[in-house]
Simulated scan of single mutants.
Amino acid sequence: MLGWFGLGRNDHGREERRSRENLARQARARLLKKIGAFLLDHDLEVTQANLATAHSAFAGLNPGLERRIRRQLECGERISQSWLDRAIAVEMPVADDAVDQLAQQLEAGISHFSRSTRSARDANSDYGNALAEHVDALDATPDTNDVIASLADYARAMLERSRKAEEELRMAEDEAASLRRNLDRARRDAEVDFLTGLPNRRAFEALLEKEYREAQATVEQLCVAFCDIDLFKQVNDTHGHDAGDRVICVVADLLRAISGEKCHIARHGGEEFVLLMRGCGPKEALTRLDTEREALASRKLVNRRTKEPFGLITFSGGVADVFAYPDTRSALAAADEALYEAKQSGRDRIVLARPSA
């Protein structure tokens, strides 16, 4: 009887494994079918880049790109290769690891060079000082003969050469310091959005991980939110891209007003912004964001170039409680899904993500 029960348990375990494997195969098959249909329907080449792009969008790795594709289709627009390339430039994560590694190597090289030149300059300075003392001593000798005089002339020439080398090393050290300052400036520039002056996606993702760890340690609440300007394509089509950029800056300034030590705003790409609110529960985060939404909707914006009104400019948003999800990636995906729900339910509203039970 015990053996019979044992076989039953083993059979049940095998059935569970087979069931999970079947589900995984079905999910892969659906994903492959979706990727293939996407490329064929839009007459896109089957290249490594296009396959990687489609996979990142439809496998949930890049919800922003998936939403951008979905919006394009909802507008009845065709997805061309040029459009997809532009979308990738905005939405695909930058491979920052290689850049950071190169910057670290460069910084280490500058530090080593700076230490070496400083050490060489100090040693050269000490040598020059000692040589100068010997020259002075030779000059002070009353019975200096021709040999001593020649040695003194030679020592003076060596001293002059030593001082020149010391000056060159000092200049090299100054150049290394300048390189370090330029590297620091370039690193800061790489984390700032050139249009709005807000942190960019790269900076936000690093900040999110830092705030996540610190909020865990201090047992603080942490919320993330996505905001997206409604019907932004119409603004660009009607008023031009320069006017569209000004609208983006208006929304950036509006959101910047609620930023602070524990509330961080970044431009995530295109007309989309992302917020991180620490020490703030989901309902409070929704209320704060909703206040700014109402403030924008009440403004009457005018195209400064043409003096024509933009009409009603609004944004939609999705808020998620980060610690209601297994990790930061899941929380970002939930906020993104809540944003999509806000768009689908009429726009100009903020939706709170609901964690699945």
Rank of each mutant, 00 (worst) to 15 (best):
M1C: 12
W4V: 15
G6V: 10
G8S: 12
D11N: 12
R14W: 06
E21A: 08
N22V: 03
A27N: 07
R28M: 10
A29T: 00
L32Y: 00
G36W: 05
A37R: 01
L40S: 04
H42L: 08
H42D: 11
E45G: 09
E45N: 10
T47N: 04
T47K: 09
Q48A: 14
A52P: 13
A52V: 01
A54E: 04
S56D: 13
S56L: 07
S56H: 14
S56N: 12
S56P: 06
N62T: 14
G64C: 11
G64N: 02
R67S: 14
R68K: 11
E74R: 10
S82F: 10
A87T: 07
A87G: 04
I88D: 07
I88M: 08
V94H: 11
V99F: 12
Q101E: 15
Q101T: 08
Q101H: 01
Q101P: 00
A103C: 08
Q105M: 06
L106I: 12
E107N: 14
T117W: 00
S119M: 14
S119R: 06
R121S: 15
G128C: 12
G128F: 06
V135P: 00
V135D: 00
V135S: 08
A140Y: 05
V147E: 10
A155W: 04
A157S: 07
M158N: 05
E160Y: 09
K164H: 13
L169C: 04
M171T: 09
A172W: 09
A172L: 11
E175G: 01
A177I: 08
S178R: 11
R185D: 12
D189Y: 07
D193R: 06
L195Q: 05
T196N: 10
P199M: 11
P199S: 07
R201L: 06
E209A: 10
E209P: 08
E211R: 13
E211Q: 08
E211N: 01
R213N: 05
E214N: 14
A215L: 11
A215H: 01
V219A: 10
L222R: 06
V224N: 04
A225S: 02
F226H: 03
I229T: 04
H239W: 11
D242H: 15
R246G: 04
L254Y: 05
L254P: 02
G260H: 02
E261N: 01
I265V: 14
R267W: 13
R278S: 11
P282E: 03
E284L: 11
A285S: 08
D290Q: 02
T291R: 15
T291G: 07
E294D: 13
S298Y: 02
L301N: 03
V302T: 02
K307Y: 02
P309W: 11
F315T: 09
F315Y: 00
V319F: 10
V319R: 05
F323L: 03
F323S: 03
D327V: 03
D327A: 03
A331Y: 03
A334Y: 07
D336H: 04
E337D: 09
Q344S: 11
G346D: 15
I350N: 06
R354G: 05
R354H: 07
R354C: 14
P355T: 07
P355E: 14
S356N: 15
